[in-house]
């Protein structure tokens, strides 16, 4: 498998999951500074011009929630997803919130051109990011994170996703120190071999 990624992006969540699953993969770095993600070569990999993309036998897969579950299914013995139907729904609920609300809030800091055309709008969007990310942290601490992990004691792929988004918080104007529950979660994640491996590879 080849994982197309850029350091510090949401692709890190997929890398952590691959490490947790113990699957071999080649990390292929896409140079965002040189706009490689928007180039013709990368369009052959992912026409959306985003990371992550995972090349597997049978094709190229994109979208973090899909990749996380795919990886968990490839390594059932690692138990990266819960067995119970309700717990599985809870896990997916958090992953969907992270992908379609919290990540989207964050994206309004630097990706305003996706949704508006005027510099004044970008400035307005960027100014609101600390507020929307704070609201997302409040919500996650109240409804999404049982502690220490998303589903309580059991680790799951939702933790890979939440961890990666939380590495953005300081840059988004949210102090992790204001959220002791998230601090405990982040410390638990930093202690895992998967996160250490991804950090050692320079992906964070």
């Amino acid at each position: 498998m080849q994982l197309y990624y850029a350091p510090g992006t949401i692709a890190v969540a997929t890398a952590i999951a691959l490490e947790e699953a113990g699957l071999d993969y080649e990390a292929v770095r896409i140079d965002f500074a040189a706009k490689e993600q928007a180039g013709a070569a990368y369009a052959q990999i992912n026409p959306k011009g985003r990371v992550p993309a995972l090349a597997v036998d049978g094709g190229i897969l994109t979208e973090t929630p899909a990749l996380l579950e795919y990886i968990a299914e490839l390594a059932p013995e690692k138990r990266l997803m819960p067995d119970g139907i309700i717990d599985r729904a809870r896990m997916r609920e958090v992953i969907s919130y992270l992908a379609s609300t919290m990540h989207v809030n964050h994206a309004h800091k630097l990706r305003g051109a996706r949704w508006a055309t005027k510099p004044a709008s970008y400035k307005d969007m960027k100014a609101k990011v600390p507020q929307t990310m704070t609201a997302s942290c409040d919500f996650i601490c109240r409804q999404g994170l049982r502690g220490p992990f998303v589903l309580g004691e059991a680790f799951s792929i939702a933790d890979c996703h939440l961890y990666t988004i939380c590495t953005w918080l300081e840059g988004d104007g949210v102090a992790l120190a204001d959220y002791p529950k998230l601090q405990t979660f982040m410390a638990a994640m930093e202690a895992r071999d998967s996160v250490r491996a991804v950090r050692a590879k320079g992906m964070l």
Binding site: K48, L61, P65, A66, E69, S100, W115
Partner: peptide
């Protein structure tokens, strides 16, 4: 698993890109 991932890829795209575009 591959077809399942294709299904989820589409759904994630719909929820976090297309639906978000619409919400603007």
């Amino acid at each position: 698993p591959l077809a399942m991932a294709r299904m989820r890829e589409a759904m994630s795209d719909l929820a976090s890109t297309v639906h978000v575009n619409h919400d603007h």
